[in-house]
């Protein structure tokens, strides 16, 4: 028997253009996650979250569904690469990712004229840190002492939310210019 006949149990996956796009964006986000893990930071839980720039750009260009795919793939593969899969850090990332996706799903409906990527980024950063603090309080450190760090986390969310939002806005800037709304117009 020639082995050329396809077996009946074989499943053939044909990735669509959408799948390729999700994979490309997720790969970029994963690279940022891994690169960021090399930056020494003073407090656990505080990181720039550069991968969220990719989430913001995908959200603006391709919508929430695709942004959710990219963000969750990034959390999963990023944790596998860093040896964090199913460790506490993974669940913190997952909670943060899910919470910020929920908030992004709401924030994307804010009027575009007044609220840009920076608003979305800051709101998502707060949702991220909020979800993480709650999980930490309920599960990892069952003591109110966790809340002592909330002001620091809030400040980090503001600063990194602003920085990531600005970078995302800049990456999206060309697109806005093409559609007739330049960043300068939008700022007015």
């Amino acid at each position: 028997m020639p082995t050329m006949t396809p077996s009946t149990t074989e499943i053939e996956l044909t990735p669509t253009a959408d799948d390729h796009r999700v994979a490309r964006h997720a790969a970029a986000a994963i690279v940022l996650t891994v690169a960021e893990a090399a930056i020494p930071l003073p407090l656990p839980g505080i990181k720039p979250g550069l991968a969220n720039i990719i989430t913001l750009v995908v959200l603006a260009r391709w919508g929430w569904r695709e942004a959710a795919w990219v963000a969750l793939l990034r959390v999963l593969v990023g944790s596998l690469l860093l040896g964090q899969f199913l460790a506490p850090g993974f669940f913190l990332s997952l909670t943060g990712g899910v919470m910020s996706l929920v908030v992004l799903g709401l924030a994307m409906h804010l009027p575009k004229r007044w609220f840009g990527p920076v608003s979305q980024s800051v709101l998502a950063a707060f949702a991220h840190i909020g979800g993480q603090v709650l999980v930490a309080r309920v599960w990892l450190v069952p003591h109110d002492g966790v809340f002592y760090l909330v002001p620091i986390f809030a400040l980090a969310a503001t600063v990194f939310g602003l920085a990531n939002g600005l970078i995302a806005a800049r990456l999206l800037g060309d697109e806005l210019a093409e559609s007739g709304v330049s960043a300068a117009d939008a700022a007015k």
Partner: peptide, 19 residues
Amino acid sequence: AAYLRAGDFLVLGAALMVC
């Protein structure tokens, strides 16, 4: 700053308030 819109300042102000 050109990438910031009016509402973004509002959100940033609220964020600093929370801090």
